[in-house]
Design a protein around this nucleic acid. Structure first.
Lengths: 112, 112
DNA sequence: AGTTTATTTGCATGTATATGCAAATATGAT
DNA sequence: ATCATATTTGCATATACATGCAAATAAACT
């Protein structure tokens, strides 16, 4: 069903969609990886200041990194008083990574 | 065992190592994602020129992208006559992505 | 040796990104 | 209203990156 001549590029086109460059872009910075790792190791959400302690960067920079991760749907945020709480959507991210792995191998299985 | 006070940062430190920013960096460019998708959809290796057809970039640029992917261990290459063949180590990449997913969720399970 | 084909590399350029500091905004407390 | 705390944003700067073109290298063929 998948090896038809009518859909020669369907697999790599779909794969290119699954392998979202924008997600990788959000995760390609060492400080942002630190942030993700820090949040993954916490059960509860953390404030910008708390997160900033974990990476040797000014909190203004951390705030910007958090926005990038939030825009990539890696993190979620809510304001609580004057603090803003960020947390990692661990299952979502894990699922996305596994979906990429699956898509890669599925695509190879279909390869002509 | 994992919730000891003696190893407060062990989980996120290990996680930060598993979530290799350099791999994400290699995959954060849309042209490189096209290349990976193109190679994933092929059973056999491809030359630089063949790969260059799939992305609207000069082949010199493609050559550079291929080097970046090779340096990140996403691709492997061998010279064959005057051509250079590149291929995707699909299982390796899929395994790496799944290891990241596992590490994320394991880390949360350990979270204090 | 010279010619053709395939890939890589040097160079110049434009664009994007990370960073720190200071100023601005937002909320809460006195 | 004023002040203190928490976060975001504007600005300037330095660095990294992608790109195209042309030149250089590598290998096969005549």
């Amino acid at each position: 069903m998948s090896k038809t001549a009518f859909l020669p590029d369907c697999c790599d086109a779909a794969l290119a969609e699954t392998l979202r460059a924008d997600l990788f872009k959000a995760l390609c910075d060492p400080v942002r990886i630190s942030i993700v790792a820090t949040l993954a190791a916490r059960k509860h959400a953390a404030t910008v200041s708390e997160i900033a302690e974990c990476c040797g960067v000014d909190f203004s920079g951390v705030s910007r990194h958090l926005k990038i991760l939030k825009d990539a749907n890696v993190l979620t945020a809510t304001r609580e008083g004057r603090k803003v709480l960020y947390w990692l959507d661990t299952d979502m991210l894990a699922m996305t990574l596994r979906a990429m792995a699956d898509a890669l191998q599925l695509c190879r299985a279909d390869a002509a």
